[in-house]
Simulated scan of single mutants.
Amino acid sequence: MTIGVVGGEKRIDDFDKATNKELFKRYSEKREEFIREELIKRHLYIAEILSKKYVNRGIDYDDIYQVACIGLIYAVDRYDLSKGYEFSSFATPTIIGEIKKYFRDKGWTIRVPRRIQELSKKINTSKNLLSQTLQRTPTVDELAEYLQCSSEEILEAMEASKVYAPHSLDVVFDANNDDKDINLAELIGEDDKYFTTIENNDFLEKNIEKLNSMEKKILRDRYFDKKTQFEIAKELNISQMTVSRMEKKIIEKFKKELKKIYN
């Protein structure tokens, strides 16, 4: 990576080809704003991925994404390349911390119409009274009849109340015939595909850097630009068989690196 000056403005020769490590090294030395902007742009996908984890929780996605971007900016400014860990490993908890902080500050200020708040309180009281009378949990229609309102209003109030009374993941449920109780976290837990996506990006970025220039071009052309082996061979002035062999060689290199991780 080389730096040049054009019309009084600094630039990086082959800017798009510069690796993230090269840019972080340069930024740590010179703190140049245009490199900072490029690093932020390259890693916006992390902010986007993490923002999606927090949708449908009472705050607009756009607001969450803006907060995540602020966290990303903090991460770029604070990242220390000499520590040896990948940027995303540092950025992820930094961004999540900013998002959670925003939810703590704003989550309970979500405005719900006063009539809904009052109806929600009446529903809770009515549930207890009707449960004693009916010896079971009342239905939505029974609650509506008791409170002299529509079923739609009951459902609206019950849904809105979730914003103000979120369930703890430590809530324990009776497992019926099983001796072991189950908590809510076990019932709703699932594999986190978003973190997997970030890990995959880290793996690719780290191992692409180890390839030579021709291998990088073949990989980019085949799997990112969707070119055929014939098109690549013609462009590089080599045989299609050579392209095929190099592609297999690249895949084998990736397989070896994956084995190191999972063995």
Rank of each mutant, 00 (worst) to 15 (best):
Q135M: 03
Y146T: 05
I46T: 02
L72E: 03
G84Q: 14
L50V: 04
T197Q: 12
N124S: 15
L187P: 15
T19Q: 02
F254N: 10
K30S: 08
L155S: 13
K227D: 06
S150H: 01
E235N: 04
Y262H: 15
N177P: 08
V112I: 12
Y79L: 06
T94P: 06
K41W: 09
K206C: 11
D13Y: 12
F15C: 12
Y164L: 13
M1C: 08
I123Q: 03
E205M: 02
G107N: 06
Q132E: 13
V243L: 11
N201D: 09
Q132V: 11
I116A: 00
S120D: 09
V67S: 07
I46K: 01
E86T: 09
E257T: 07
T92Y: 07
D77A: 15
E186T: 10
K234P: 09
E48H: 02
E209S: 03
K226H: 08
R57S: 05
E152V: 08
Y54F: 11
Y74W: 13
L147C: 06
K180W: 13
V172F: 03
S82G: 05
S151H: 02
S244L: 15
I99V: 12
A185Q: 13
A233D: 14
E118V: 15
L236A: 05
R222I: 13
R114H: 04
I12K: 06
V67A: 04
K249Q: 13
S239T: 15
K206M: 08
R42K: 07
G8C: 02
F103W: 05
T2A: 15
V112S: 02
D77I: 05
L236P: 04
K210F: 00
D178Y: 14
C149T: 13
T109C: 04
A18Q: 10
R222T: 15
I35K: 01
S161Y: 04
I154G: 06
F87A: 08
E29K: 14
K121E: 11
I208W: 01
K41Q: 10
I198Q: 01
N128C: 00
L130H: 00
E231Q: 10
L147W: 02
Y262K: 15
R115C: 03
K100V: 04
Y27P: 12
I35L: 01
D80L: 08
K127Q: 11
E205W: 00
Q132Y: 13
E37V: 09
D63Q: 12
Y223M: 05
K122F: 00
F24K: 02
L44E: 12
D105P: 00
H167R: 09
L147H: 03
F90Y: 10
G4N: 06
P93R: 05
V172L: 06
M241H: 13
E9D: 12
T19A: 06
E29I: 15
K127P: 13
T92K: 09
F203H: 00
Y45K: 09
G4P: 02
A144H: 00
N124H: 11
N237L: 11
R115T: 04
K100Y: 00
E190V: 07
D191K: 01
E205A: 05
R114E: 06
